[in-house]
Write a protein that binds this DNA or RNA. Structure first.
Length: 328
DNA sequence: TTGTGTTTTATTGCCTCC
DNA sequence: GGAGGCAATAAAACACAA
């Protein structure tokens, strides 16, 4: 008897619910356009008369929830129709608050989501509800608020994650691009050195343009990394090889304009970490390949920002980024 | 009309605080 | 120990598609 149940709720707060209306009409009971609950107004003054039955019902019943003495206020005798009997048994079940009551409670909740005892009593009086009902409503409302809040937090984190993921993928692409560039330059260097070597051996009297210097050699990985001399790099035509590694926007350019990025910024992925390389290797790598403005400070020299909760390594292990960069 | 999913009201049990 | 809060849950009320 879903309709009856629904009517049980509706009748008491909203007026003449269709189900109840039909039911009452079949019994030749009054179902005026006026809210039926007008019949149930309790003695207590209330700002929400329409809601009063919700409390007055139990008041009238003297706390005995299964009595139906209130029904006699209709002037009916005990020979009520069974449907009506069923109906009022339903009426003893849960009833929803009126829109006005909910609105009032919502406003109170906005002001203060916790309920002081005095306020609870006052609200109960104003709304014609039991203080217990007020307390329950606030409790449930807090639970709903918390759920909503969790959903919001989740969405925020999700958006942030998506953004970081895009950044990370862009960095991967950039890394691949830079690796290709380095390989290209390495090939050209080797070729040039080879040519120079041949020239030197065949024409010993010929002087090179540049004075001989001790080449600074880097070795990211002893057995696979090419030997690159700074001297050669200086004279190399880098026009096509101008890398965005050295762009001001480049993550490594930590001294160019802005300091370390916040977590969430794409450059944050370049935050230096502890190295797998030896210190010598790191130093050599830094000196040989990167401009001075692009050398990562040592961990002990810089107060690195710590991402909330934990270190933000974007899924990387806590390793040296040079290793990450140069490794496949 | 009915089945089903969602929302709302209410209960229960546990925990914390005074 | 009582009051009040919260999480989990039940169940009524309600919405809606088929």
């Amino acid at each position: 008897m879903e309709g009856g149940g629904g009517g049980g709720g509706g009748m008491f707060y909203g007026g003449c619910v269709p189900n109840m209306s039909a039911l009452l009409q079949t019994q030749d009971l009054p179902c005026s356009p006026q809210p039926v609950d007008a019949f149930f107004i309790s003695g207590s003054s209330t700002s929400f008369m329409g809601a009063s039955p919700m409390v007055s019902f139990q008041d009238i019943c003297g706390g005995k929830r299964h009595e139906r003495s209130f029904f006699r206020t209709f002037g009916q005798d005990d020979n009520v129709d069974e449907d009506l009997d069923d109906y009022f048994q339903q009426a003893e079940k849960k009833r929803r608050l009126t829109a006005e009551q909910v609105q009032f409670l919502e406003k109170s909740f906005e002001l203060e989501n916790k309920l002081e005892p005095e306020k609870k009593i006052q609200l109960a009086k104003d709304l014609g509800l039991q203080p217990r009902q007020i307390a329950i409503w606030f409790q449930n409302r807090r639970a709903r608020w918390k759920t909503k809040q969790l959903e919001k937090d989740f969405e925020t984190l999700q958006a942030r994650y998506d953004s970081l993921k895009v950044d990370y993928e862009n960095l991967l692409k950039e890394r691949e691009k830079l690796k290709a560039e380095v390989l290209h330059l390495t090939d050209r260097l080797l070729l040039r050195e080879k040519e120079q070597g041949e020239l030197g051996s065949s024409n010993t009297g010929t002087e090179l343009e540049t004075p001989p210097q001790e080449p600074i050699v880097y070795s990211a990985s002893e057995d696979e990394a090419p030997q690159i001399s700074i001297d050669a790099l200086k004279h190399e035509d880098l026009g096509s090889a101008k890398s965005d590694v050295f762009d001001s926007d480049s993550p490594c350019n930590i001294n160019a304009g802005h300091s370390f990025a916040e977590p969430g910024d794409s450059s944050y992925a370049f935050e230096p970490e502890n190295s797998d390389l030896s210190q010598d290797e790191e130093d050599t790598l830094s000196k040989s390949l990167l401009p001075t403005s692009c050398i990562f400070p040592k961990m002990e020299d810089v107060d690195y920002p710590t991402p909330p909760g934990n270190s933000c390594n974007f899924g990387f292990h806590v390793e040296d980024h040079a290793t990450w960069f140069w490794s496949s």
